[in-house]
């Protein structure tokens, strides 16, 4: 098992380097000169030339990329063009908000999505099934930010129950998390339902029924554990989408996270912030995929044994 995890971590390194190369190239190709941005329009030609040299902008692409990676490994992502603070500090101060939001988003979508999917499957073609499939359809079709706005409209502006913006308390995270959870909850409901429907028809379920196991035990002990495998994959794959969604939802609820930071940095062309933010999010998505893969091996002992034999 340890060897499997180690191997997966090693395999992540080229992916991370690839991501950084892509992002670095995209940003490099962009028009606009960071130096004139930093010094303003009134700067003298000499000052511009000096700063260019100082920042190493005159070196070629690969030298600059290598230097960026070299610094990034030590936690140095440069200095923001706009407010001259260390990028890594800026990211670090905003990271917890995004992570909390994403965590609750995933948690809510799993905690509601899986049971609803299970009930939908064991009560196939009933009203409950139709209702849950219909809600899943609505939830996948709504733009997440629109759902967020509607929630603000109802719970903050009309009823005055929940705060519309900010991150001060857990209450502030309730509406954003639900908003973020909606779309992936729909995917989980549909996925759980269809895999459960397949599993219920298997012979070992009939065996369990024949030996008189209770309905609860059959569903949760025999069926669900087998049905969960593909669902776990979907949850893992959704995590990246959730992070992307968090970026927009932070804007809706004015939360000081990586998303609002990234959007503001794109608007002001603050390249070091954009790069670091993209890298952080991509890194987080890769780590999650790794965790899901390891979890997968844990849930499905067949995979584990396959590896141990090698």
């Amino acid at each position: 098992m340890l060897r499997y995890i180690a191997k997966r971590i090693l395999m992540m390194i080229p992916v991370i380097l690839g991501i950084s190369l892509i992002v670095f190239s995209i940003i490099e190709l962009s028009p606009g000169d960071p130096v004139s941005l930093m010094l303003g329009d009134g700067a003298s030609a000499q000052a511009v030339a000096e700063l260019r040299e100082q920042m190493g902008l005159n070196d070629n692409f690969f030298v600059r990329y290598a230097r960026y990676i070299g610094h990034a490994v030590t936690g140095d992502f440069g200095i923001s063009y706009r407010n001259k603070v260390q990028v890594v500090n800026e990211i670090a101060s905003r990271f917890p908000t995004t992570l909390t939001l994403t965590f609750w988003g995933v948690a809510i979508s799993v905690l509601i999505g899986i049971p609803v999917g299970v009930i939908s499957a064991i009560r196939q073609y009933t009203f409950i099934d139709a209702a849950s499939l219909f809600s899943a359809l609505i939830l996948t079709s709504m733009p997440a930010f629109w759902l967020g706005l509607l929630l603000i409209l109802l719970f903050s502006l009309k009823l005055g129950l929940l705060p519309a913006t900010g991150v001060a308390t857990m209450q502030h995270f309730l509406m954003p998390s639900v908003t973020l959870a909606a779309a992936s909850m729909a995917t989980i409901i549909r996925m759980t339902r269809s895999t459960m429907l397949e599993v219920i028809r298997q012979d070992y379920i009939r065996t369990a029924k024949a030996k008189g196991a209770s309905a609860f035990r059959i569903v949760y002990k025999h069926a669900l554990r087998n049905a969960l495998l593909p669902v776990v994959t979907v949850i893992g794959l959704n995590f990246g989408t959730q992070l992307g969604g968090a970026i927009v939802i932070e804007s809706v609820f004015a939360m000081p996270g990586i998303g609002t930071l990234m959007v503001a940095a794109v608007r002001t062309k603050d390249t070091p912030i954009v790069m670091a933010a993209v890298l952080f999010v991509a890194l987080l998505a890769s780590i999650t995929n790794l965790i899901v893969d390891v979890l997968y091996a844990y849930i499905d002992p067949r995979l584990k044994s396959q590896f141990v034999k090698k």
Binding site: I22, G240, T241, L243, G245, I247, V274, V278, A282, N289
Partner: peptide, 13 residues
């Protein structure tokens, strides 16, 4: 490996 939304934002940047 880069979430779609993030990649799109990076290119827009």
């Amino acid at each position: 490996a880069i979430p779609q939304m993030i990649l799109a934002i990076a290119i827009v940047a």
